[in-house]
């Protein structure tokens, strides 16, 4: 039973990891919170849903969700971030909030506000490993997360673009000095982040077999907490914090009652913000006040 819970928690945590990674790609590099990521995730989920029920295979659905979210991310960057990049950091956050409101409204109008259900015949297969049952989709989520995280790791660590991204994350002033290419880096961060959110959306929608236009806010806020716990300037923090929160959540639901779970997660996030603003994994303090 406990092992089963751990596996379930791990699956949820994997999705948190992807989405938190998506938030932290923008947050860590540009210092802004792109609130629309929550909605990119939700839209990605709907796109994946639609493609699967239209008879396309899973890879196409994942790709569709990813591309759709990435395209919207580009629009957000062009309209909502670029013109405001010299404004106080809260201003572009509010403009992404505008996009978030629009996207949710669009989804409600296209797909309706009632939950959409995936027919049972999709991904219903269960594999038994001793006492533990793992669903087909659960396996896919876990494997896909590992692959995607490795891919992002490769891009960020090994490619020249990735190195430039990290340089900018270390010192935001560098972005201004880099001039023209800083614009491209910003765009790259938005695209990477949007794609990840889209994929995460497809995966969780298929895993749960149901989706609503409000999925984004619910899981998105949680993913922000995961990002904070892992460390906002620390892309790898999400890898630890995601599973941690996923498992903690599943366990509190199983043994504590379903409603305390949010209380625990957000309480933990606030503690981290206050006591360890650099996140669980450490690194340099991110909250140091400006010097005179």
């Amino acid at each position: 039973m406990l092992i089963q819970q751990l596996v379930n928690g791990l699956t949820l945590g994997a999705v948190y990891t992807l989405l938190a990674l998506s938030f932290s790609l923008v947050m860590g590099i540009l210092g802004i919170l792109n609130l629309a990521i929550a909605e990119l995730f939700m839209i990605g989920g709907y796109l994946g849903f639609t493609l699967i029920t239209a008879g396309f295979p899973l890879p196409v659905a994942v790709l569709g969700g990813m591309l759709g979210a990435a395209v919207i991310a580009i629009a957000i960057e062009k309209i909502g971030y670029q013109p405001l990049r010299d404004a106080p950091l809260v201003t572009p956050m509010l403009s992404t909030l505008g996009f978030s409101i629009i996207l949710q409204n669009v989804a409600t109008n296209i797909w309706g506000s009632d939950p959409a259900q995936l027919p049972d015949e999709y991904f219903g297969k269960q594999y038994a490993f001793g006492p533990v049952n793992i669903g087909e989709m659960q396996l896919i989520v876990l494997v896909a997360t590992v692959v995607l995280v490795a891919l992002v790791a490769y891009i960020v660590q090994k490619t020249p673009m990735g190195r430039a991204l990290r340089a900018v994350a270390e010192n935001r002033e560098v972005a201004r000095i880099l001039g023209v290419s800083a614009d491209r880096l910003t765009m790259l961060a938005f695209i990477l982040s949007g794609s990840l959110a889209g994929v995460a959306g497809v995966l969780i929608a298929l895993h749960y077999g149901t989706i609503t236009p409000y999925l984004g806010v619910e899981i998105g806020l949680k993913a922000i907490a995961v990002m904070v716990i892992g460390g906002t300037r620390q892309i790898w923090g999400a890898l630890v914090a995601g599973p941690l929160i996923g498992i903690a959540e599943v366990l509190t639901v199983a043994y504590g009652g379903s409603q305390v779970r949010d209380f625990v997660v957000y309480g933990f996030m606030i503690l981290i913000l206050l006591l360890r603003p650099q996140g669980l994994l450490g690194g340099a303090r991110s909250d140091q006040g400006q010097r005179v």
Binding site: V90, L221, Q259, F263, M269, L273, P277, S286, D287, G289
Partner: peptide, 27 residues
């Protein structure tokens, strides 16, 4: 405690506080 936080970090902490209070009333 929020004095230690600025800008977006403060905003995120207030989101967390809001969700905690909502969760409290749910229970």
């Amino acid at each position: 405690p929020a004095l230690r936080l600025k800008g977006i970090y403060l905003a995120m902490a207030t989101v967390g506080f809001g969700e905690m209070v909502r969760s409290f009333f749910l229970n």
